[in-house]
Design a protein around this nucleic acid. Structure first.
Lengths: 217, 217
DNA sequence: GTCTATAATTAGATAGAC
DNA sequence: GTCTATCTAATTATAGAC
């Protein structure tokens, strides 16, 4: 069944040239991959989200796998920016507290990163090997080392440095991975500033039980 | 292109009657839905996993949605058994510690429950509304209430009772949701007894900083 | 670079033989 | 209850006009 235009002159296909179409497709892909996983996401649906046609995805990204990889690189580069601007200049405890705040704020603003991770990390695959080697392991090692240093100073909870990664990522991000569920349970947006502040304070107090944030004089 | 049997007598289709085929299909579905989500999972692949034919799924479960619902009910009923056998008879702190151990052991043995949850909870849907109302909210409320009581007793970390659910589920389960990743990072199976013991001890110490498990006299 | 048309494959569901 | 055959719809990728 074909679309029958009321008037042929108005049916002329509109050419929607946009200089940012690659970014629009990428953002649409991030959303789709986060919500439905690699297999569940469809390039047709991604294109529609960007008000584009499905073959434009193959033109700009060759194939679905390269689109997925570009999406992953994009969200991790955004995380890099947050980490890079985190103030580690004070004492290690204040630096760790700032890191926790950065991670919670990032998870609230960009839940897609962790959503894509859980979609991929449920089963072994080439995609998982790539993302783990490229993006995850350096962060895992850094956090493990930082945590061991905090334990040396006697301010950190007795969590094994090999396991601290999953405690930190689990607490800072699960509420945002499951944000559609959290919105139902909390009856409000879990990304609200008040929720974020409470969540950060709770996590820091729990992980650094002997640390008291400096109060302004 | 059709399969040409070497000998017609050996090509007779084998009728694989099994009285537990429904359970086999259900178990295969749990695995597939956990790893690839509702849209990513295919009934053909699920049937193949159970060494059955794709139409048998429609025969035993009507359609894909009812298969999914049966899979969810199954894993939550298994969780119920674990919770039901948890010993809450001692003091509240010992009961909470036992609950944490039960949750970690369950996540290690049945990561599919939480994997299915994160697959579904990323976006609003009828499936999410059903699973949240039916299975999640009662547990969320129970944990919130239990936590408030522990805080009254002065032994619990300063986590908001409205947020404790995500702290508990995040810490107890993320390493098992991401078990394929964790296996790479830890260079061992995160479901190993030694890892489980360490993880439980860390979480309990962090959440109940003033609680010291009773040592045998 | 955008767009239509379409090829090649796979999806979930149903009909009917056994 | 199992199985083959098949329908309709949806998938990713490609060809070629513009």
């Amino acid at each position: 069944m074909h679309h029958v235009p009321l008037d042929e002159s108005t049916a002329a296909p509109r050419r929607r040239d946009r200089d940012n179409i690659r970014d629009l497709l990428l953002e649409a892909a991030i959303t789709e991959f986060a919500q439905r996983g690699f297999d569940g996401a469809s390039t047709t649906s991604i294109a529609r989200r960007a008000d584009a046609h499905q073959p434009q995805i193959n033109y700009h990204f060759s194939n679905k796998s390269e689109l997925w990889q570009a999406a992953v690189d994009q969200v991790f580069s955004e995380l890099d920016e947050v980490i890079a601007t985190t103030d580690f200049l004070g004492d290690p405890e204040a630096g760790f507290a700032a890191l926790i705040r950065g991670l919670v704020e990032f998870a609230a603003a960009r839940p897609e990163l962790h959503q894509i991770m859980v979609q991929e990390a449920t089963a072994a695959s080439d995609r998982l090997n790539w993302i783990t080697d490229t993006h995850i392991r350096p962060r895992y090692e850094q956090l493990s080392t930082l945590w061991a240093a905090l334990q040396q100073r006697g301010v950190a909870a007795p969590i094994d440095p090999k396991l601290i990664y999953y405690v930190v990522i689990g607490t800072t991000s699960l509420m945002y991975i499951n944000r559609a569920e959290a919105r139902i349970l909390l009856s409000e947006n879990p990304a609200n500033e008040a929720i974020i502040d409470k969540h950060v304070a709770g996590i820091v107090a729990m992980l650094l039980p002997h640390y008291k944030p400096a109060t302004r004089p």
